[in-house]
């Protein structure tokens, strides 16, 4: 099987974000990681190839430093990588999808393209739909259950209120993964060493014929979410504290 996994290189979610200027952030100091949802996609692809044979190729659109996330995915078992280099962390999702499409089509014929349900930096939740749309392939996202059938995939996901939906798609297809699909492996030291020797092909986005101009959505401002300044503590015995709380929630906050 020929599997492609779209992996984004993102700031560690535990790190604090330092805003620079109106719409930038300091990406020179903090730690970056493989987008957490994309780890489920890498794990799934590696397991599929372990079972059925074939190759896993990581595709990343990012700055030069994003190569670290490709290596991390290779340590989990991916075979090759493609880095489409850009100048900005936040391309709009149409442009990213066009770059992913061009990189994949230039490289080979996918059986399945996997990615995460969303990137934890821009929280876009749409790139894979646009990639599938551009390639005229079926897409299902937020999957936490997957089985391969004859020329098709059966996938499951939540649709809210505790309900689940099972869908059938023909291959090739695009799938967005989320927690519950598998347990991403922790690479061992020898795997990390082996990953260093695996090939990564770097190509500038312009050389794929994709323009970064005319973005349909543009980040114009970033602001820190103000933290609450500390709780009003309700004292007294349990009964008194609870009665005070209920009164406040009802009469002052009007939320119950």
């Amino acid at each position: 099987m020929q599997l492609y996994v779209c992996v984004k290189h993102v700031p560690d979610t535990a790190a604090s974000i330092k805003i620079v200027g109106e719409n930038g952030f300091d990406d020179s100091s903090g730690k970056f990681i493989v987008n957490p949802y994309d780890e489920y996609a890498v794990e799934q692809a590696v397991q599929l190839v372990e079972k059925n044979g074939g190759e896993v190729v990581i595709v990343t659109v990012g700055k030069a430093a994003a190569v670290a996330s490709i290596r991390a995915a290779m340590a989990m078992g991916a075979h090759r990588g493609i880095l489409v280099t850009v100048e900005s962390q936040f391309l709009d999702s149409q442009t990213t999808a066009r770059a992913l499409k061009a990189a994949i089509e230039q490289d080979g014929k996918p059986d399945i393209i996997l990615g995460g349900k969303g990137a934890v930096d821009s929280e876009g939740f749409q790139t894979l739909y646009r990639l599938a749309g551009g390639m005229n392939l079926p897409v299902v996202s937020e999957i936490n259950e997957m089985e391969l059938g004859d020329g098709k995939a059966i996938v499951g996901h939540e649709i809210g209120g505790g309900a689940r939906e099972v869908l059938e798609v023909s291959l090739p297809c695009v799938l967005g993964t989320t927690k519950g699909l598998n347990e991403p492996r922790y690479p061992k030291f020898p795997d990390i060493m082996k990953a260093k020797k695996k090939p990564i092909n770097e190509v500038a986005i312009a050389d794929l014929g994709v323009s970064v101009d005319n973005a349909q959505s543009e980040l114009i401002k970033l602001e820190k979410v103000p933290e609450r300044s500390g709780a009003k503590m309700l004292d007294g015995d349990v009964r008194q504290a609870v009665e005070a709380l209920v009164r406040i929630l009802k009469e002052e906050e009007k939320v119950i």
């Binding site: 979610t13 930096d121 929280e123 970033l222 979410v225």
Partner: peptide, 14 residues
Amino acid sequence: SHFSGKTTATVKMS
């Protein structure tokens, strides 16, 4: 929201 709820982004769409 951007960055897992740590920042709020204003996004212009065209």
